[in-house]
Design a protein around this nucleic acid. Structure first.
Lengths: 148, 148
DNA sequence: CATTGACCTCAACCTTACCTGAGGTTTTAT
DNA sequence: ATAAAACCTCAGGTAAGGTTGAGGTCAATG
């Protein structure tokens, strides 16, 4: 554990281990995120990673975006839109999370559609290639030939 | 293309290429599925794969289950519950797809929850570690210590 | 001031779901 | 009968998202 400020009991800079414990990701994941350009920090005299407390919010944002279905590279791109490497402010967070919410909504809608098709088709069980929406996601009508 | 029955114009047995064209997966995917125990067929005198027409339904079922979010090994397990390697009947299909529908429903619900939390938190932007549901998916209250 | 836990780098490995290509055989069409 | 198209096996590759381990350094503790 990195040393603590006497007054607050809160460390002002965090080691990888601190960040790992507090953010719920492993140290190796933090290293990995660093190689992918998702997080960064500085090094102390002994070449050990040190992070400002804002890293915690950044990692939280990354994990939320992952849950919403974004890939790490999409997340990196989104984080890169922050002016000169700033940590996400409330305003930034609002903009990014709004976009992610919409992507998430799209995903949800396509899953709902699949679920409804399943509901329909569980009853009939036909799985007709030309007619069943489950087999024909794009709604492309088959050739004249019968298939299944 | 495998040779066709004179009467119907429909091949009674299908080659990998036929299956690929008709099912929308590639030949290499069919090979791959075979190594994973998801599909099987027999071999002709020249060691080429031949499949009964029911393979098409089987592949369709696999792809639907994938879209619903199941892994290939889960799908294999489900297909293995079919008595003595039978192809899925309407009854089987109903049982499996019912279970998948429920798994899909769970996924949808967790995404909906995430979306609603995003909606709430887009406004506030706090991302408080101890209070924000987005940062605290399991609803576990943090330690006494303040974190972010 | 020595020990022990935490860190460092780098390379290799893991899982899922496939794809690619080399080198050789079989089928189909002409 | 022959050439082209399709098929075969097997090894190796890809991408994402990490994990593991070796060999060595740094820092907090008694």
């Amino acid at each position: 554990m990195t040393k603590r400020t006497k007054k607050t009991g809160l460390p002002q800079e965090l080691s990888v281990g601190d960040v790992a414990r507090r953010s719920g990701v492993t140290v190796s994941t933090l290293h990995f995120y660093e190689t992918k350009g998702l997080v960064s920090g500085y090094r102390n005299a002994g070449n050990q990673r040190r992070y400002p407390r804002s890293i915690l919010r950044r990692v939280a944002v990354i994990r939320i975006a992952q849950r919403a279905g974004l890939s790490l590279s999409e997340i990196r791109e989104a984080l890169e839109t922050l002016p000169n490497g700033r940590q996400p402010s409330i305003r930034d967070w609002r903009r990014m999370s709004g976009a992610w919410r919409d992507a998430l909504q799209d995903r949800i809608e396509s899953l709902l559609k699949l679920r409804d098709q399943l509901d329909l088709c569980i009853g009939c069980g036909c799985l007709s290639l030309t007619d069943c929406p489950l087999r024909n996601p794009g709604d492309i009508k088959g050739k004249s030939e019968e298939i299944t």
